[in-house]
C-alpha cells in the first residue's frame, strides 16, 4: 500500500506512469502483445487483427465524439473513404501499402474536415443528423460512381511492398505486425495529443464551447481540425481493412457500422484512449464468444439451430444495456475502480 506519489520535478509529475504497479502492468501488456502471435492459431490471429484495426477506428471516433463532444454518425462513411482510397491506389496504381495507407488516411482527413464544416452551426443531435448525411452521401457515391469504385461490385485489393512489385499475400501472422505498429502509433499519438495544447482545446470545446472561445480558441478551426484528426485515424482503419481482407465492399461501411462504433466507445468509455481500446476489444470478442457458445449449444439442442443467431443478437443487445445501466462511464471506469480498490487494499476505506 502506498501513502502517496511524490515528485521533485514537473517533468516527472507530468509523466504518464508513476508507480511500479503501472510500469509492471505496461510490461505485462507488452509481453502479451509480442507473445500472442507465436502461440495463437489462425482463428485467434484473425480476431487479434480485427481488434487492432477496430481500436484504431474507435480511437479515431473517440477523438471526435468522446474528447471534442461532436457526435458523429459518419464513421462508416469515413472508413469507406479510407478503404476505397487505399484499395484503389494500391490496385490501380500499384502503390505499396506503406504509401497507400498514409495517403488514404490523409484523404479521409480532408474529407472529414469538409464534412466537419457544419459543426460550427450545429450541435448535439443536429450535428449527428448532419454527419448521418455524410455517411449516406459517401455510401451513395461509392455505389454509384461505377467508373472509379466499381459500384456495388466488390473491389479486389492487391498488396504490394514496392511499386508494381510482386503481389504480396500476407499471412495473418505477418499482417499482425503491420496492424500492431499502426495501432501502437495511434495510441501514443492520441495519448500525447490530449496532454498538450491542441488536445486541451478539443476537450475545452466539449465541456464549454463559449468559454473556450473566450479563452482564445477558434471554434471553427479546432472543430474542423478535430474532424480531420479523427477521420485520419478512421481512414487508416478503413485502409487497413482493405489491405487485410483484400476485398472492399460497400456493405461493410453502412450506418450500422457507425452505430456499432458509437456503442463501442460508449461501452468502453467516452473521452478516454483506454476506453476506446477496451470497447474495441469487448465488441469484437463478445460476438465471437457468443458465436462459439451458440455453436456448442447447437450440438446439444439441434432443434434450436435456427433460433441461435437471434438469441446471439438479443444477448449482445442485453449485455450492452446492462453495461450502460451499471456503469454508464464504461469499462475504463470499471477498471479504474478495480485499480483504486487494490491500491488501498486491504484498508479500502
Amino acid at each position: 500500500m502506498q501513502s502517496g506519489i511524490f515528485h521533485s520535478t514537473y517533468e516527472k509529475d507530468m509523466a504518464l506512469r508513476h508507480t511500479p504497479a503501472q510500469k509492471i502492468r505496461l510490461a505485462l501488456v507488452i509481453v502479451v502483445i509480442f507473445a500472442l502471435p507465436f502461440w495463437a492459431d489462425n482463428y485467434y490471429l484473425t480476431l487479434a487483427n480485427q481488434i487492432l484495426i477496430t481500436i484504431i477506428g474507435a480511437i479515431g471516433l473517440n477523438i471526435l465524439t468522446g474528447f471534442t463532444g461532436q457526435i458523429s454518425l459518419g464513421q462508416g462513411g469515413f472508413m469507406a473513404v479510407g478503404a476505397y482510397t487505399a484499395g484503389l491506389i494500391a490496385t490501380r496504381l500499384g502503390m505499396p501499402l506503406w504509401l497507400s495507407i498514409p495517403i488514404a488516411s490523409l484523404v479521409t482527413a480532408a474529407v472529414g474536415g469538409i464534412f466537419g464544416i457544419p459543426s460550427l452551426r450545429l450541435k448535439g443531435l443536429y450535428l449527428a443528423i448532419a454527419t448521418l448525411a455524410a455517411q449516406e452521401i459517401i455510401v451513395w457515391l461509392v455505389t454509384h460512381w461505377d467508373a472509379v469504385t466499381g459500384g456495388v461490385d466488390a473491389l479486389n485489393v492487391r498488396n504490394y511492398l514496392w511499386f508494381q512489385g510482386a503481389r504480396m499475400r500476407f499471412t495473418e501472422f505477418q499482417f499482425y505486425w503491420i496492424a500492431l505498429a499502426l495501432c501502437v502509433g495511434t495510441v501514443f499519438a492520441t495519448v500525447n495529443l490530449f496532454r498538450t495544447r491542441v488536445g486541451r482545446a478539443f476537450v475545452a470545446i466539449r465541456d464549454q464551447d463559449i468559454a473556450a472561445e473566450v479563452m482564445g480558441i477558434d471554434l471553427f478551426r479546432y472543430k474542423v481540425l478535430a474532424f480531420a484528426t479523427s477521420s485520419f485515424f478512421v481512414g487508416m482503419s478503413g485502409a487497413l481493412i482493405a489491405h487485410w481482407r483484400q476485398i472492399v465492399t460497400w456493405e461493410r461501411f453502412t450506418v450500422d457500422i457507425s452505430i456499432l462504433y458509437l456503442a463501442m466507445i460508449i461501452i468502453g468509455g467516452l473521452g478516454s484512449v483506454s476506453g476506446a481500446i477496451y470497447g474495441a476489444i469487448f465488441m469484437t470478442l463478445l460476438p465471437a464468444f457468443l458465436n462459439s457458445v451458440g455453436r456448442s449449444l447447437g450440438g446439444v439442442f439441434p432443434l434450436m439451430d435456427n433460433l441461435i443467431p437471434f438469441i446471439q443478437k438479443a444477448v449482445f443487445g442485453l449485455v450492452i444495456i446492462l453495461f450502460l445501466v451499471f456503469e454508464p462511464e464504461g469499462i475504463a471506469k470499471m477498471w479504474r475502480n478495480v485499480k483504486d480498490y487494490f491500491r488501498l487494499w486491504p484498508f479500502s476505506y
Partner: peptide, 27 residues
Amino acid sequence: LFKHMTVLDNIMAGCHVHMKTNILSGM
C-alpha cells in the same frame, strides 16, 4: 469552467493563446 478537466488543465487551457505546440508536435 471545463468541468471534466482538472484544475491544472483548466489553467493550462487558459494558457492556450500563449502556447505554440501544434497538433503534430503535440502528438
